[in-house]
Write a protein that binds this DNA or RNA. Structure first.
Lengths: 228, 228
DNA sequence: ACCTGAACACCGTTCAAGT
DNA sequence: ACCTGAACACCGTTCAAGT
């Protein structure tokens, strides 16, 4: 009586189990075997719900983006004739919520890199950005380019932050020398040969901060939104 | 007589073999066993050269960045008093070369995400950007933020492109329904519910193009470099 | 339709042992 | 120092079989 259609799971239950694993044990633990095991079924049974591990990861992205609040911060009826400044605030707030959402789950970046962002909720996000940029006075084609550039900046920023965070301080260099094949520039990493980098080390140390994220985002918006 | 110090490899030889695997068989083939096998040694012998797979991948990034030409396009003595426009051209050209370098090798994105960009050649790139931005009139702290924002944009752009490229068209959705847990917005992906997205589909189709890359980069530079 | 159990062809990493 | 061979604890995926 062990095999057979005893009970089944909803996709939401499976994805919840997957996110439990992601948060408690990291991205590497989100395996077909791991998720199946935490549900109490065999790995092959999971293939009934998702045809591959990649399909599972894509489902997780959608699950995450479904929780992204797309509304404007001040309420839906507060702005009647939105000026460029208000639209910028809306976009920045949305980008910040996206960043919070993705950095809250360790390894969420791995999810995004597993395939294109073309699920319904990803499109909902894109549509919202298009609305904002057209409301700011951009033409449709320009708004499409602007929305893509903004997503590039936001996701790139999160990607670099997460790459910095799982820094392995002891395994930074090969066993003995320091990158012996650096094309003859500097066999030994000498900070003195990078004067500007060493003088801005205090800024670099804060690269993965909300401040730096917003600063770059505002500069990008300076170029994207014409008037402001 | 099999084991023992018969011959040894240089780090460059090992990395060349790893890049051969990356280009011919993709990122998944760049395994400790795979690289060792193509060199004719056992996996454990590779741990003599690199203490972990991560160290190997970091070595590959440096190997790649060592080939990045950092000089200005027009020659080193052509510009005497570089104006803002010339500096912008230099930065755009550098970003384009970085993009070409990383997109030329399938899966190079996976390398960058494997850890922070802190090797000597990564610092050489950062130093060059700092020089350009300070030459454009930015203060040191602002230049550091600008250099980081530019790298965020460039790497994010390449990341999204590569995510789009290995699109698995048949495994886009779960087995039966289309993302059944999309939080009640739309159970079936209906393009009519995303009017702006559908009207800009022709632009979205060209997102991974040099044009789109440069357009967004120029908008970012509009915000970063004050005068131009 | 949903599930099990066995199997295939892989992983990264460690350990004891050889020269 | 550099290397082998065996082993540990894993992977994604497929296939035949059960209810």
């Amino acid at each position: 009586m062990r095999p057979g259609p005893r009970r089944s799971f909803t996709h939401a239950e499976i994805l919840d189990a997957a996110f439990d694993l992601l948060e408690t044990k990291g991205f590497a633990a989100v395996s077909v075997r791991g998720v199946a095991g935490s549900l109490g079924i065999t790995p092959t049974a999971l293939y009934t719900y998702y045809s591959s591990k990649n399909a599972l990861l894509r489902g997780m992205i959608e699950h995450l983006l479904a929780r992204l609040d797309l509304r404007e911060p001040g309420g839906s009826d507060a702005v009647e004739a939105p000026d460029a400044a208000a639209i910028r605030r809306r976009i920045v707030a949305l980008a910040l919520r996206l960043r919070e959402l993705l950095t809250a789950h360790a390894g969420a970046l791995g999810l995004i890199m597993s395939g294109p962002l073309d699920g319904p909720n990803a499109m909902r996000l894109n549509e919202t950005l298009l609305e904002s940029f057209t409301a700011a006075g951009l033409g449709l084609d320009e708004a499409a380019r602007a929305a893509y550039a903004l997503q590039v900046y936001a996701l790139g920023s999160i990607a670099l932050e997460s790459a910095d965070q799982d820094a392995d301080p002891e395994a930074a260099a090969p066993v003995d020398g320091l990158f012996p094949d650096a094309s003859g520039t500097a066999l030994w990493t000498d900070l003195a040969t990078f004067p500007l980098s060493s003088r801005t080390a205090h800024v670099a140390a804060q690269h993965n901060s909300t401040d730096q994220f917003v600063w770059g985002l505002e500069r990008l918006l300076d170029g994207l939104v014409p008037s402001a």
